[in-house]
Amino acid sequence: MGLFRTIASSLILVIFIYVSHQLTRFTDFTWVGTTSLVAFLALLFTMVIGTFLFFWKEKNLDHKPWRDRLLNGSLTVMAYINFLVSFVILRDLFAFADNLIMPTPFEHLYSSQATAALLGLPVLFIVLGNAIVQIGPRLKKVPVFFKNLPQELEGLRIVHISDLHISPSLPTSFVQKLVARVLEIQPDVIVFTGDILDSFVEKHAEEFKILKNLKAQHGIYYVPGNHEYYWDAHKGLQAFRELGFQVLVNETANIPVGSALLQVAGVPDPAAGHFKHESPDFARLQSQQREGSFKLLLSHQPSLAAHAQIAGYDLQLSGHTHGGQFFPWNWLIVFFEKYSKGLYRLGNMQLYVNQGTGYWGPQLRLGTYCELTEIVLRKN
């Protein structure tokens, strides 16, 4: 962890030097203006580094509002820096390409006016991204077709929730909107595919009280993501069990629907092993399968799809990627995740990746949205 902090801090320092240089190099600011701009950027970068260094070692369960405000402010600053760095890089790439194609003076791209625009645009992006979050979860209905689907499961509706990230940065009102929307749908099954809790469970009694209102005819099923293991996973998982959720850690729930059998299996996130918890065990899951059943796997990580396909599952539901969440990561996510969002076919198995019902970090989405998925099973 110490090495990671050193690398992360060093990377942020390099980015700060690059951005400061590119924003002041060609401008006609006075030395006072240049110094003020560099000092402003230094304050922003220091706030991000300092706050995260503090919260990385924070183990105090006391709920103090000032800490939440500090964290939320730092996350907003992080978003501002993200957009600012992206715009500076895009400007530099455009200037470089323009100079190669048509060597002409491009000082206007680096003028004081251009610098002011670059400093202001991130604010607009943050406002837009926050407005998308304030709307709340958006329902996406996804029919998924199978040749081997038992007739009794035709039209079965599964509400899929992933990456809610209950934490001090997620308003309680967001959880209320989510639960109200799910209750309107009246699903047959509700599944949670990890990163639902991203904080100490003791701090979020109100959110858990709201989640307790969820209902589904054939039950509610939950698997942990990587973030649950960062915050005392034993207590977190027990809290979900006390809600009536069936927590599946290398376990399978058998759900009879008429004469058909729906098997809902769940694997923990591979991060579990790093925290001395039970790791994914597909051999154990295969021993629980029954011939002729429709086999659904819940896995936070879509990267486990190859194992699920070999194990003979019909459908895997996952999350984790957030679809990149906001610009430019919503464009770049495909370079880091083979299955970034949406529906995929792997041989006889299908995989659906939810782009996140909540969000991680700053309260914004841009180029994506908070997704509440309704999976509808259909027979070809």
Rank of each mutant, 00 (worst) to 15 (best):
V142Y: 00
A131Y: 13
V142R: 04
R69Y: 09
D92H: 12
V38M: 09
R69T: 09
V48K: 06
N82W: 15
I81C: 04
A95P: 12
K141C: 01
A39C: 13
V38C: 11
F26M: 09
F52Y: 13
L71I: 06
T46A: 06
I81Y: 06
R157C: 01
K140S: 01
E152M: 03
L109D: 00
L153A: 00
G129W: 15
L109W: 13
P103I: 02
G50H: 08
L124T: 05
L84A: 09
L53Q: 13
V123L: 15
L70V: 08
S86G: 11
T35C: 08
L53S: 00
L156P: 00
V38F: 02
I89H: 08
K141D: 00
T76C: 12
T30Y: 04
H160D: 04
A95E: 11
I49K: 05
G33T: 09
L149W: 03
F87W: 15
Y110Q: 03
F83N: 03
F94W: 07
R138L: 07
L71V: 02
T30R: 09
G50E: 05
M47C: 06
V133L: 12
V159R: 07
E58N: 11
K59N: 08
V88W: 15
N60V: 11
F45G: 00
L43G: 04
T76F: 11
P103S: 01
V32S: 06
N82A: 13
L43A: 14
S112E: 07
D92P: 12
I49W: 03
L44S: 03
I89W: 12
A131C: 05
V85W: 14
V48F: 04
F55L: 12
L84Y: 13
F106C: 01
L37Q: 07
A79W: 00
L121A: 05
N82G: 12
L75E: 07
S74F: 08
T35A: 14
L109R: 14
I49E: 01
V38R: 10
T115Q: 08
K64T: 04
I81V: 11
L71M: 09
K64G: 01
P105C: 11
L100F: 06
A116L: 09
G120S: 14
D68G: 09
H63A: 05
V85C: 08
D28W: 03
G136N: 10
V144H: 02
H160W: 06
L100N: 05
T76P: 09
L43P: 02
R91A: 15
S162M: 08
K59V: 04
E154V: 01
L43M: 14
V144K: 05
P65H: 11
L37Y: 03
F40W: 14
R69A: 14
R67T: 05
I135P: 00
I81R: 06
F87M: 12
K57I: 04
I126L: 05
A79L: 07
K57A: 03
F96L: 11
I135G: 03
F87Y: 14
V127N: 03
V127R: 08
I49F: 02
L128C: 06
M102W: 08
L84Q: 14
F87D: 13
L53H: 07
A117I: 15
M78I: 02
S112R: 12
F52A: 00
I89Q: 06
V142K: 09
L124I: 14
